[in-house]
Amino acid sequence: MTTNSITLTVNGDQVRRDVPARQHLIDFLRLDLGLMGSHVACEHGVCGACTVRLDGAIVRGCLVLAASLHGSTVETIEGVSDSGEIRDLQDAFIARNAAQCGYCTPGMLMTAADLLKSNATPTRAEIREHISGNYCRCTGYQAIVDAVETTAHKRRSSGPKP
């Protein structure tokens, strides 16, 4: 088995590991770093459960090789939870019961947070479109759309006045 040595930043911590060349980012996070919040579900880039942030942009963790990430910055659900960056979005998910089994939730939150960074006033259709690559079998999506919409609204009304 071929391995590669990488040094990268994960949730603010610099980590150095030897990783199997074939290992994808999510297995690296889970097996090597014990970050179990990013979930493996389809492993072919369709379901979105493994969505994490790589150098500031969301990616499918199962379609990124860990070996390719020397020098990169990775943020996971654990990181954005600890930093408080998406606390309001998480609270909205709790209040609206926008998670049921919780398996899609970390990926869904990373994706929704990505939308809110670039679009402060998303319509419901825009929210649905942006999360349309994240599969949720439990909720039927409406509660998730509601929670994202509520968060956007709250951010606007509590943000700095123009």
Binding site: M36, E78, S81, Q90, A99
Partner: peptide, 15 residues
């Protein structure tokens, strides 16, 4: 609200 959700929204469930 459900008691399970705070851990699940932080990716701290245990599957």
């Amino acid at each position: 609200p459900r008691p399970n959700l705070p851990k699940l929204v932080e990716g701290r469930g245990q599957f």
